[in-house]
Amino acid sequence: MTNVWEYDDFIFKGDELKGMTKKGKDKVKVEGYTDMIIPATTPDGLPVKRIGENAFYRRKLTTVVIPETVESIGYDAFGVCSLVEVVIPDSVKKIEGFAFYRNKLEKVKFSNSLVSIAPSAFALNNLAEINLPETLELIDTSAFYKNDLEEVKIPKSVKKINMYAFNKNNIFEVEIPSSVEFLHERAFEPTTIIKRD
């Protein structure tokens, strides 16, 4: 895949990629480029550490390459796109609210240093399986609301699972490790069998 993206397709502020310029937006809208390769450095040579709020919201992206420099993905950064698969590099520690909300995700490779998944980050997708990293501490409200999950393994690092985190999936049974200090009574379906170790 050749990289059609240039620095002047994006808006940068410090080490954050804030969004797209008119030129960048036109590449998507007019020319139909929906395979996004996010630059690893800013024009000033700083590593891109953050993808900002709404950076690619409703940009119809079908694929995205996130560089190994990014540490946080902002609110609604890729909300309402058409992503089917995403690899979240190991540099990412935080995925903010609605970051990948309402896409077509079937496959996500999570960062191995991910600490928190904020509200509705992966809600309304088509995920049938997920492999959560052993660094994750927080699965917030509606994080995986309405996907196609039939089972999920909660890592022993998780401390809190909030309301509707796994609601509207098909999870029959789940084991909750003793490390989980807070499990909202509505984190899963009322019919999901919850086993505490």
Rank of each mutant, 00 (worst) to 15 (best):
A40I: 01
T63W: 01
P190I: 09
T21M: 10
V115D: 10
A128Y: 13
E137D: 02
M163W: 02
V92F: 09
A123I: 00
I171L: 04
K25I: 01
I11N: 10
I37A: 13
G24K: 11
R58I: 00
G45H: 02
I38Y: 04
Y57H: 14
L136M: 02
A123V: 01
C81G: 12
E53S: 08
E85D: 12
G74V: 01
N162G: 08
D90S: 15
F100C: 12
L127M: 09
G74W: 01
I73Q: 13
I88K: 14
V174I: 01
A165G: 12
F188I: 10
T191V: 05
F12G: 10
E150K: 14
E185I: 06
T63Q: 13
D9L: 02
F56V: 11
N147C: 03
T69Q: 12
N112W: 02
V180R: 10
F182A: 13
K153Q: 05
W5M: 04
I88P: 08
K29F: 03
K159F: 04
L105A: 13
E185Q: 09
I11Y: 07
E106L: 05
L132V: 05
T63D: 05
Y164Q: 12
Y164A: 11
A99E: 06
Y101G: 07
A143K: 06
N147Y: 03
V84T: 14
E71C: 06
R186G: 09
E189S: 15
G32I: 01
K93L: 04
V48H: 10
F166W: 05
Y145T: 00
G32K: 12
E151N: 08
E189I: 02
K13A: 13
P43K: 11
N112E: 05
L105P: 03
A128F: 10
N169E: 01
K49L: 14
L149D: 02
G74A: 08
V108G: 13
M1S: 15
G32D: 04
E53F: 07
K13S: 15
K107R: 15
S142V: 04
F10D: 04
K94A: 06
L17C: 06
G74M: 00
I73V: 08
D90L: 07
S120E: 12
K160N: 08
V108N: 13
T192R: 10
K23D: 06
L138T: 07
S142K: 11
F10G: 08
D148T: 00
P119Q: 11
P47Q: 14
P67N: 10
V64I: 08
T21S: 12
D90Q: 14
E185L: 05
L46W: 02
Y101A: 09
K146T: 06
K18C: 06
Y75T: 12
K94C: 02
F166E: 07
E150F: 02
V48T: 10
E96R: 15
F144M: 07
D44Q: 14
M163C: 10
L149F: 00
E68H: 06
T2C: 03
V48K: 13
N131V: 12
